[in-house]
Design a protein around this nucleic acid. Sequence first.
DNA 1: CTGAAAGCGCTTACAG
DNA 2: CTGAAAGCGCTTACAG
Lengths: 342, 342
Amino acid sequence: MESMNNRLRNSDKLTMDVIAHNLQVSKTTVSRAISGKGRVGAETRDRVLKYIESMGYKPNSMARALAGAKTYNIGVVLPDTDERGGAPFFKDCLVGVTEAAARRDYDTVLAVISYGNLSRLERLVNGRRVDGIVLTRCDEKGKMVSLLRSQEMPFVVIGRDSSKSVYQIDSDQKDGCAELTAKMLRESPNGVALLAGSKEMDIERLRYEGYEQAFSQAGRKLDKSLVFWNSEEKLEADLDAVLASGARGIVCSDDLICLKVMESLKQRGVSVPEQMAVASFFDSEDLEMNEIPITALHVDTKVLSQKAGDLLIDILDGKNPEVRNYAKCSVLYRSSFRDSAG
Amino acid sequence: MESMNNRLRNSDKLTMDVIAHNLQVSKTTVSRAISGKGRVGAETRDRVLKYIESMGYKPNSMARALAGAKTYNIGVVLPDTDERGGAPFFKDCLVGVTEAAARRDYDTVLAVISYGNLSRLERLVNGRRVDGIVLTRCDEKGKMVSLLRSQEMPFVVIGRDSSKSVYQIDSDQKDGCAELTAKMLRESPNGVALLAGSKEMDIERLRYEGYEQAFSQAGRKLDKSLVFWNSEEKLEADLDAVLASGARGIVCSDDLICLKVMESLKQRGVSVPEQMAVASFFDSEDLEMNEIPITALHVDTKVLSQKAGDLLIDILDGKNPEVRNYAKCSVLYRSSFRDSAG
DNA sequence: CTGAAAGCGCTTACAG
DNA sequence: CTGAAAGCGCTTACAG
């Protein structure tokens, strides 16, 4: 009878009060057993844990949020535009952040931003509906950063941000370029040429550093005459030089240059990869869909965004992580260059 | 001095209590002015509203959630798989639902589901982190429906669901087919042929109904000899018949049939759209990318999902909407058939 | 190790 | 039309 009464009471609404009453302990003890914070006797803790498990009790998240001044929600900002090929990137971001968040007991709330209108983000931030924000690729990042700073809302950026004080998580292109170059170098005794873009661009210099690093790590001499800057503008001449050099491998700093290289090599009757290995430091669908699919350095958006979620929650947990963080790039081997070692 | 004191106090943390104190009214009044529920003098209301506006006050959403037993969050479920071409669909769903939600002061929380593991959804539901759920295309919909029902969590499904009691929002293919057929009929005095799939399939019969409707609405006689079921299997024979009939238009019930039709017409030297107009009742990227881009009925995922969000919130607001709801399809005109009227 | 009590910032009967 | 007060379901000093 007694137990039946309890069941009836409980089935109505199971709260810490009810649990405490049924277990003859205090609400405080129940709370501590669940959260793991504060001392509780091991025996008591187990009893509580077992009971809530058996009853399928889940703490009310809103009450927890209010009392603890934490929402356990993180916001993810994405643009409402559908740029060509952009959708997979954003879906991967969302999935990655959400998985990382879920593992640490956070949920993900969306803010969809139209150009010129940050109201959706303001809502999340001003209404304190989230504890922190992940910013994905979007216009007006600058404005958002100002807003978040002024409201003292913690945030991280997926991708490179020039500010030294913005938590960010980017792909480790330098290491990736080094890895790809190293692989090619191993099979190309006469060197590997680099067809790069403008030296003025940070990203181009970074890729060059990776290229450089592969040589020094392999203990090989870098032949500067095989490095071509601004290559789009004088591709044919550069390729003449590469072919004359006897090098059997080319790395291109992006997909556009690479596509042109492939076309020119085809014109010249140079077969890829038999006579010349080719790879790109930047992947794109066009590389995959090319007549001869092209090996390229690939950024795994899901991994990148998982790290972004983890980074944000580290910050929320009061840890002091690095401001700039990098996720490893992977080489996606396709026909234009195969790693015979692997 | 006094006012400065207030400013200092307020800048610390602006709550209803502080506002009530500063305005010499009760918290109750402030709350009512903001929510619009319960009577407040117009003058008082305006004073409150003006004040909170000037102070940039935003009610704490967690407190509101706890007190009101409403989270003002809706959950959206999506799979973690990246099926080919699926990403745009899910991004559009998310954006659509989120926009509809935002307009009605709700936020969107994600639940990413891996196959065989509903724990992420359970978290949202059991922890009462959301007031309702939007289910997108995913495996295990059946299990989810059971879970949601057992927890009495309101939900809607994007797409057709066979259950008569599941709130759902689907594209209005019947009307769309009718519209497309009607347009073609107007320019094809000798009739429009339908190359369909299996009569056993609901969706195929539905499309046929749309086709039929176009005839009756136009006051034209439907020539059954121009309707071909299971057309994939005997396409050449069917096309022989269509061409012999003198019909100048063909609608195909899906993209696969349509692609085959285009190929066969090319073989036969029949030029599209000059000698034969062609369109599909189901769009796909392949239709857009075809040598002759093909006109097709298009489902606007964003509109569909906006309606899903609105439907869910209608339910949450205690309205009693229809169980089955439809969003208009639109005809995407491409080269294979142009609407000369438009 | 454990508990009584205050407090998080709202909403909403209930009583003027 | 307006307010005092209880309550939403937790967390967390504070005091044993």
